[in-house]
Design a protein around this nucleic acid. Structure first.
Lengths: 218, 218
DNA sequence: ACAAAAGTGTTCCTTCTACACCCATGC
DNA sequence: GCATGGGTGTAGAAGGAACACTTTTGT
């Protein structure tokens, strides 16, 4: 027998950086350290449901806003000094939320850079696995749109790839690739001026779930 | 609190078909039905270690012979009528073993076609997830070699792809692709005549862990 | 000799890459 | 006007698909 928890790797892009939602621990062990949000799975509750509930409780976010999937399960004996705890980690990719941590349980939740180590428990490793999963998934799936608001420009979508992959992509080739890939994005017909320069068309997510051919990391 | 188990999706290729190792249940519930092998995680045991131990116990196989990874975790309330059981599923890709189920706990373990439904618990779904993971991984990793013995021919490796993907691949283009992809396979210098026809060179796995560019499903 | 499987060469076509160039706006 | 970002065209390189053809064995 073991306690079963869910931990959440909530990723978003804020101020041009990949960020993760962390909470500051208010009790021992690891008092005062940053940790992934999470909590116990209820007796009559499915794992996905528990993760979605925690997401709502910790962030006030609708889980359907972005993308949500099981990441992996961690159960090394001793990973929690209080006893045997097996945690099922979930990964969510979310748009930069207008009211990020509103009405939250954890009043001390905060978006932090995703590459800072020093988290409680084995959360450094869980976070690293989540970031790596996100990097890989952008190649074969249209999930980059999960980081964007419902309507977005091609430049904003390119910014997602550049931030997550830590590379620069050619704006011209990226535009062609994304707009010609079947079902990746759909034009809304509207356009908007973000900075200076020519107004950009707005797009929304398309129906595709896979990218054929993929968009490979340089 | 919940009971934590590991379940194993052990895949191999036998007689030209993708097969999975199943055990016939000797106790209720699901008495007499086929199920994935598995068992309880010990109190002081890591999840990976428990899975590797079950693999040895059920099959007598060295886990390093093929490939081994965590698949996903399943914890729907009621998936086991005896109580709350959360199971961490592992996926292994194994060569066709000379002595498949020797010295095994489960004397009734047997290789069965991987596409037959009717398993106990939610094992149909776990198996389907494992097969889909295997299909996807062959595209961008060199893991097809995990289904092969230490030395193998290009035709045997092609047979792995054809069986797992349920397609035909052009032998000539496949040969070129595999032998020129950096680190996928290495020539041993030996050759062997399998059927009729010109003898084939033997290869062993190369050091690569990713395929660049990938080998996409047709 | 013939069948069968292994392996090479070649041609065509799609996709990637790099970059020249035009477009539409704010200032 | 000019700077700035949005978007199109195009030439060359790289990789994939189709298939003719040669090599090396068993029978």
């Amino acid at each position: 027998m073991a306690a079963v928890t869910v931990d959440l790797v909530l990723l978003t892009i804020r101020r041009g950086a990949l960020q993760v939602l962390l909470v500051r621990r208010g009790i021992e062990p690891f008092l005062g350290q940053w940790a992934l949000p999470g909590g116990f799975v209820h007796d009559d509750e499915d794992l996905d449901v528990a993760a979605a509930r925690e997401l709502r409780e910790e962030t006030g976010v609708d889980p359907t806003a972005g993308h949500f999937e099981q990441l992996a399960t961690y159960g090394t004996p001793g990973r929690d000094p209080r006893g045997r705890v097996v945690t099922v980690a979930y990964l969510a990719l979310l748009p930069d939320l207008p009211a990020p941590v509103a009405g939250s349980d954890a009043a001390h939740a905060e978006w932090r850079p995703a590459d800072d180590p020093g988290l409680a428990f084995d959360h450094d490793r869980i976070l690293a696995d989540g970031v790596e999963r996100a990097r890989a998934k952008l190649e074969y799936s249209p999930l980059a749109t999960a980081f964007c608001p419902p309507e977005f420009t091609v430049a904003e979508l390119r910014g997602v790839y550049e931030t997550v992959w830590r590379t620069r992509l050619d704006p011209r080739n990226f535009h062609r690739k994304v707009t010609t890939a079947e079902g990746f994005v759909e034009p809304t017909g509207h356009s908007v001026t973000r900075d200076r320069g020519r107004p950009a068309q707005l797009f929304r997510r398309g129906p595709a779930t896979l990218l054929h051919p993929p968009l490979l990391r340089p």
